[in-house]
Design a protein around this nucleic acid. Structure first.
Lengths: 153, 153
DNA sequence: ACACTTTGACTTTCTTTGACAATTAGATTA
DNA sequence: TAATCTAATTGTCAAAGAAAGTCAAAGTGT
């Protein structure tokens, strides 16, 4: 028979998958669903969802309390940004920049906020004073610097 | 079910938003609206609108008494960034940019992280391809765009 | 034998409620 | 006018309620 820990682990992972990388758990409700005591959930969380395993677990006690489990993918994020920097290369147009940033957001590599910030720095409006011949090159350079700053922080 | 505290917190924040950063509250009326005892309002105020969270709460008892909640952080931040944009003007050197950003961080107007990001976009390294005569002007333009993006987010 | 699971009693934290106290503006009275 | 009363407000505090956390003892599988 499958071990309880495994059952619960799967349940939580499924919740995470179904919900964009974030599961919001009501401990006692989940315990009831899995037919076990609430502290079992705590046990699974601490043995299978540690930060070393790529998860962030936050919780609140008291009325309306809850546990949230977030899956973070540092490696992928890092890889993604590196590839993005490659893709930018020596020059990038405003359109290309926008597309790259949108892709990064939906891949979860950067936040929407950061995308907006970066876009505001490399828009044609921001770079209006740069001659059109070099503009795409300047844009590429700024954008790569911004992405590197995001990575190494 | 949504927590009562959260509901009330949102109600108050909405009032603040709708009214220029200042909410004037009648405790018992708000309690009735939220379907709770008046002291619940007091509880929310003390746990969610402390000065550490950027709010000033003042009150008066007795006939015609009331509670006012003022948001300070956002206003100050906003003002600070506006002045910063003024200070940048048409042109700004790398040194000046760094000093302005450090000031903004210690004033709490922007986070250290954002300062690093902005600096990475306006450093001489990022703007290396821009001719030296126009570089300070380009830098000013990018920096102002970035700050505006921060403000309006 | 050992490491890992499962259970449950007890603890800690946060929220909700209600009774009672303090304060104030305005009306009433001496 | 000055003092007093009254009604309208907010403040305080402790108890009850609603989660999640801890830890040690008992159970299981290899």
């Amino acid at each position: 028979m499958a071990r309880l820990v495994d059952v619960i682990e799967d349940m939580i992972k499924e919740m995470i998958d179904e919900n964009n990388g974030i599961a919001t758990i009501n401990r006692s409700a989940l315990a009831e669903q899995a037919n076990c005591v609430p502290s079992q959930i705590t046990y699974v969380l601490s043995t299978r969802f540690s930060s070393g395993q790529g998860y962030i677990v936050e919780s609140r006690r008291g009325g309306g309390g809850q546990i949230t489990v977030t899956r973070v993918d540092f490696l992928n994020k890092f890889e993604y940004l590196k590839e993005m920097i490659d893709a930018i290369g020596d020059a990038v147009t405003q359109q290309q920049a926008r597309i790259l940033l949108e892709g990064a957001v939906s891949a979860g590599a950067i936040t929407k906020r950061d995308a907006i910030i970066i876009m505001s720095a490399v828009s044609d409006r921001a770079l209006g004073l740069v001659e059109t011949e070099t503009r795409s090159k300047v844009r590429a350079r700024i954008m790569k610097n911004l992405l590197l700053a995001l990575i190494s922080e």
